[in-house]
Write a protein that binds this DNA or RNA. Sequence first.
DNA 1: TTAGATATATCATTAAGTGATACATATGGA
DNA 2: TCCATATGTATCACTTAATGATATATCTAA
Lengths: 104, 104
Amino acid sequence: MKSLEQLTDPVFYIMAALAKPKHGYAVMSLVEETTNGAFVIGPATLYTIIKKLLAEELIVLHDASDSRRKVYVLTEKGRTVLEKDIERRKIMLTLAEKELTKGD
Amino acid sequence: MKSLEQLTDPVFYIMAALAKPKHGYAVMSLVEETTNGAFVIGPATLYTIIKKLLAEELIVLHDASDSRRKVYVLTEKGRTVLEKDIERRKIMLTLAEKELTKGD
DNA sequence: TTAGATATATCATTAAGTGATACATATGGA
DNA sequence: TCCATATGTATCACTTAATGATATATCTAA
């Protein structure tokens, strides 16, 4: 995750889920449910990425955490990065659809 | 690239570009120009991925190729995979935007 | 005639993702 | 009460993916 540009898919999903405070397990559940099981983030992926996001200060441990559940939420910086990545992804989709339909 | 679900960003870009026949170098140029240099696919990434896509039969060497320029194009299978991934990406974006705006 | 763009390709390294596993607490039945 | 299942966090070791550096050849325009 060089310098925060180009979020990978799992990173994007996790950050999107953490736009609102959630604990890790809830992130896994949300993604799995929302995608009808098409996208599953396992614990290894989840906690590896959470560790990175904390280090990059894109998320923080939220007050509401207790010893059992650790609640995280996007920082302002994280929100900005996510919003920028949403734009990038929209441009990607535009390009793809243009190429697919162009001409025929 | 397990079994063709979840295309990574570089793979997605390259496949999108190859919806219409193009040689490798043109793919690099197209992506770089379209994104105003925000996304750059270097030769190592490009040819590594082209090799994989050929092996998976998502692209094929196109007739118009000569010894200098190798022109590739999506197969029917490749087109189907790309279209499915476009849908997945749209769902991802919907989820992200919903989480970002929900409540406030 | 030669510098820079075009074009393809691989090697070696780094970065990213993940299966397997571990461990603790909570909860709802039998 | 016991215990199976779900909830919840975490890491290790391995695989997969991406890429910087480099090599090589051709084409083009000054």
